[in-house]
Design a protein around this nucleic acid. Structure first.
Lengths: 224, 224
DNA sequence: GTCATTATGTGACTTATGACACACTTCCGA
DNA sequence: TCGGAAGTGTGTCATAAGTCACATAATGAC
């Protein structure tokens, strides 16, 4: 499979591009470049102009932010097949977090200028993008009310399920960071995890969580 | 001033169109129609296709939703100069609430089909719209974390300040509805309002709140 | 007017969660 | 090998806010 075709597949998996036609995806993919990073190399920093969209071909990118106390908090891990910077490529605003390679990494790069001039030539695609952005706005405002008002166990279960989708049943994350993710104190996270361990839903190790029963976790996340 | 010019002014006041050039606004305004509603008349209902954007020329539109128990909750009031349905006009999704005229009302109407074919002829405007939507997405995701994690007094103060901007210092809203807005129990809302009344920040009447000291309310809303 | 309805005020209680404190373990570097 | 840092487990306490229960006051239908 050509690089372009590979990138098209990644785009297709992202909700933002999922509904575009095969021909449009192909033409967009034709605009992409690739970029190599060695482990620890910085892709961009907070404040940099958002002048591209990235897709991970292989390796890992860590999205992190410097906290006020100097410590670094990892906000997200992007693995092969993941896409990030979809909004930045469209509006060019500053990056809101840092991105560094966690290991040797190869990226697909879609530059903002290339994508915008493509949209200008293809107004139908632009309108399609507008509709997708609108969906996202709606989706966000629904989630806004919904998610944050949920009790901690639900938020925690949702986050764990999401992480499990990316990394399988062995999630590599400290309870501290998990607390930041779900907006809760580390201790509260720990107590909930303990409870779930007693219920055989998961197991705990230092810096790592082993999900045994994703089915039950999903039930909790749904909060029927 | 012509109707079109009047509509252009309303568009210009909305963040979504604020950055468009005068010529573009003029051409968009040229697409608009007007519509008259008598008091109590229904403009659209939840589930209707979102096939237009509306601007209030005179009168009042109530955005409300039927709760499961059959009671109606007013989510918002739109007065002269207010614009609503900006997202619907772009993506055509179902309306998520009902809209009825609170009094005899005249509306500007910008139909979805007209606007979309305009965008197709003017890809530069489409790209501009894309960027504005992106801003909105960013703005939303900032607000998302920020606002909901705030304690009740802050959320309440923010909502009251926002309402004050629309309606001046006499806000017409029941404490019940205010509770729905800020995601809190009516009783909690009441207790906080009582506290503020003691502090001379506001006064309470049946179905109505009189803001005396917006400065202090703003301070609380900032939550320094 | 009478009566039902709706909005508001308030107390008692419960619960979830944050905050703090501290012990224990694992890891890693000098 | 030592020592400290980071991650984790747990107890105690304080507090914000929800829930329930009821009293009171305004409004509107008849």
């Amino acid at each position: 499979m050509s690089k372009q075709a590979e990138f098209a597949v990644i785009l297709k998996m992202n909700p933002m591009f999922a509904d575009l036609g095969a021909d449009e995806l192909q033409r967009i993919s034709g605009l992409c470049h690739t970029q190599h990073l060695s482990s620890g190399e910085v892709l961009f920093q907070k404040g940099d102009p958002g002048n591209a969209l990235f897709g991970v071909r292989r390796g890992q990118i860590r999205i992190e932010t410097g906290a006020t106390d100097g410590s670094r908090l990892t906000l997200n891990f992007m693995g092969p097949g993941d896409l990030f910077g979809e909004v930045a490529v469209l509006d060019g605003q500053e990056r809101t977090a840092d991105a560094t390679a966690g290991e040797a990494t190869e990226l697909f790069v879609l530059r903002r200028e290339d994508f915008l001039s493509f949209l200008e030539r293809e107004p139908k695609v632009a309108i399609r993008i507008i509709q997708l952005l609108c969906q996202r706005i709606r989706w966000q405002s629904e989630r806004m009310e919904e998610s944050v008002l949920q009790p901690l166990p639900v938020r925690l279960a949702r986050r764990l399920c999401a992480l499990a989708e990316d990394f399988g049943s062995e999630v590599h994350i400290s309870q501290e960071q998990l607390g930041v993710f779900v907006g809760a104190a580390r201790e509260s996270v720990n107590r909930q995890l303990q409870a779930w361990r007693k219920d055989k839903i998961l197991d705990l190790q230092r810096g790592r969580i082993l999900l045994h029963d994703l089915t039950r976790l999903n039930t909790i996340a749904r909060n029927d």
